[in-house]
Amino acid sequence: MITFSLNGEPVRFNGDPSTPLLWVIRDDFKLKGSKFGCGAGLCGACTMHLDGTAIKTCVLPVAAAADKAVTTIEGLGNPEDLHPLQTAWIEHNVPQCGYCQSGQIMAAAALIADKPSASSEDVDNAMSGNICRCGCYPRIKAAIMSVAASALSYDAAATEANS
């Protein structure tokens, strides 16, 4: 049996430990926000956080999540309590078909948590594992940069206040 934390709640999985985490989350825990795109870790539609790190879960055996914290798009924010990136996504009218966007937002959220005032180059580097077939890249980038810019101005304000 494998135990891990899913969006803050302890959960147990009794099936085949080699099952990719994505399918355990989707088919057993019925959280459908994370998507299947390639099954080979090439497109990022399945991106979740494992102990805060963005990870492609279509190739990650559920056993690798044992005793760790898994966060999905459902745990990041919800329509009543949006993560700042989700707010930015709506403000920039980012999604088209929308299928890849959970993965895009999870990858971006890990970046912003790590580098709150990420640069344009940081964004390109962090996001190039996530494919958007509709080609929403200009808006994805603008949305992330708007959150990074507000972090930058927050940092500047905090620095000023502390000086």
């Binding site: 459908k32 926000g33 994370s34 999905t72 798009i73 459902e74 924010g77 919800n78 329509p79 949006l82 989700q86 996504w89 709506i90 403000e91 009218n93 980012v94 999604p95 929308g98 966007q101 959970s102 937002i105």
Partner: peptide
């Protein structure tokens, strides 16, 4: 804004 933006930004679009 797109009427589907909220659902698609929160993983709740089916």
């Amino acid at each position: 804004p797109r009427v589907d933006a909220l659902a698609k930004a929160t993983g709740t679009a089916n």
